[in-house]
Amino acid sequence: MSEPVIQIEHVTKSYGTGGPVLRDVSLTVAGGEVVVVCGPSGSGKSTLIKCVNALEPIQGGRIVVGGQDLGDRRVDLPRLRARVGMVFQHFELFPHMRVLDNLCLAQTKVLGRPRAEAETRAMALLDRVGLHAFAEKHPGQLSGGQQQRVAIARALAMDPMVMLFDEATSALDPEMVSEVLDVMVELARSGMTMMVVTHEMGFARKVAHRVVFMDQGQIAEDAPTQAFFEAPRSERAQQFLSKILTY
């Protein structure tokens, strides 16, 4: 594998005065790698994803993204975040803007792209996620699955060096899950570096290089995909797998 894109080293994190939510977490994502993160609710998956984008501060350890230490005061965080794509459970499209404007806003305001260039890029990406015809619509006029595909296109418009997904399909009606997973699989196969929090084990088997299992703020297991599914070493991962795979 090539250069690491994300290096998480001995990270400790707590919210306010509460107890630690991440405890000595270390994880590396190399360029072109697809890492799936799973684990029970409350184990700290969302928190970890947010820390990678410096949306949440950490109390110990360090996180290096694209060679830049997030804790370094000289790092231009908005510029760095612009190159880290993020997809949320609830899409978080901006409801008052047309789909096209959702895709152009950060391109023009953060990257400083001319509007025409931003629109060309936006239309190409809408095409890629199969929503070329919806550019003039508002998010509220789209289905959940369509909105999430727009959200992915919006993140891709920034030419990210890595894409973070936080349960991108868990707020969707069942019939819309596959259209979003299809886009994510295509993205993974195109060589995008991805860190994906999901319980879609089919997706993990298909494209993940590694699966990370989190429990109570710690990484309980970090294994190549095949090894993880065939012979999870930790007991907690075994229990978790049996629970979500048996039904």
Partner: peptide, 25 residues
Amino acid sequence: QGQRAAATALGLTPAQTYRYVLLPM
């Protein structure tokens, strides 16, 4: 809450987040 996070994640500054994302709604 996710609206602010999404804007920040796209690289918008706090001022831009208020100006283009939060205040219009």
